[in-house]
Structure formats: structure tokens, C-alpha cells
């Protein structure tokens, strides 16, 4: 009962905030809406029994990535957009393709996939940090190490791209 209500509330919040991301004029409003989406998604993760992922979502996305976005928006003083006549193909074909996309996927989910379980909060408790740690450091050890190298490269790239020119 409670999880159903919670799901509906969080879903509505996520969708509304999602629309907001797309429809707002100023980027800062879009960024804040995105934070709303991420928060509601975190709750949904909790409902699905993914404790670690929910926490990681809040910390990494909400706490780091979105803060970074906000910093950059402030730094660039990005204003509202102007209309453009280029990319006519995107403007014309984009909506129909999107609708078709949603339609096909919805159909696939409802009709083609095998019967799915119902989600009951607490019916599965295998998403703890312990479980993730066990899998992460045994089966997925190599991707884990590679990911760390990736982060290093990203740091170096970001520093190299954004630093001042040496004159």
C-alpha cells in the first residue's frame, strides 16, 4: 500500500521534473529540475531494494555532478536561447520519431516481454553494500580497475582543457 503510493508520488515528481528540464528557458532552472528527478529516482531505487545504488545516486549525481553543472552554468552566465533555423531535419522528424520510439518500447514491454514480477518493498534484500562489494571486487574486478583509470584520464582531460593558456 505505502509503496504503491510512494511509487506514484515519486513517478509523478520525476515526470514533472523531467518535463521541466526540457521545457525551461534558463539552464539553471533545468539543472534544478534535474536534481528533483534524481532525488525521486533515488527513492524509487530504495523501493526496488537497491540501497547502495540509491545512496550512490544521491551522493554522486546530486552532490557532485549537479553541483558541477551549476558551477559551470554560473561561470558561463548562460542566458536564454535564441531561435535557430538550422537543423531543420531534427525539428521536423524529431517528434514523430520520439512518439514512435515510446510507442514501440511500450508495446514491447507490455506485450513481448515475459511476465514480470510485482515489486514489493522488502521482498528482496540483496542490494546491500556487502553484496555489491562482493561482486565488484571478484567478478568485476577488471572493469573496476579500468574505471579508476578512466576517472584519472577524465581528471587530466578536464584540467588540460580548462586551464588558462600559458603565454
Amino acid at each position: 500500500m505505502v509503496d504503491t503510493v510512494l511509487f506514484i508520488i515519486c513517478a509523478i515528481v520525476a515526470i514533472v521534473c523531467g518535463f521541466n528540464v526540457v521545457l525551461q528557458r534558463h539552464p539553471i532552472s533545468s539543472a534544478l529540475s534535474l536534481i528533483g528527478v534524481m532525488s525521486s529516482l533515488a527513492v524509487l531505487y530504495l523501493l526496488l531494494g537497491a540501497e547502495f545504488i540509491a545512496m550512490a545516486q544521491m551522493i554522486v549525481y546530486g552532490g557532485a555532478v549537479m553541483v558541477l553543472f551549476t558551477f559551470v552554468i554560473m561561470l558561463l552566465n548562460a542566458g536564454t536561447e535564441k531561435a535557430s533555423s538550422k537543423s531543420w531535419f531534427a525539428q521536423i522528424a524529431g517528434l514523430p520519431l520520439l512518439l514512435a520510439f515510446v510507442g514501440v518500447l511500450a508495446f514491447l514491454i507490455r506485450a513481448v516481454l515475459p511476465p514480470l514480477a510485482a515489486v514489493a518493498f522488502g521482498s528482496w534484500v540483496g542490494g546491500t553494500a556487502e553484496h555489491i562489494g562482493q561482486l565488484l571486487f571478484t567478478t568485476y574486478l577488471l572493469p573496476f580497475e579500468v574505471i579508476s583509470v578512466l576517472i584519472l584520464i577524465a581528471i587530466l582531460g578536464a584540467v588540460a582543457l580548462a586551464q588558462k593558456e600559458i603565454d
Binding site: 538550422k86 537543423s87 531534427a90
Partner: peptide, 16 residues
Amino acid sequence: SGSIRNYATWVLAGSL
């Protein structure tokens, strides 16, 4: 065309 939005639309069409 150089326009990223067009490219994205093509990707969408292809993935669809």
C-alpha cells in the same frame, strides 16, 4: 551538415 541535432535525430531513427 555539421549540426549535432541532426546527427542525434539520425541516431534516434537508427536505434528505433
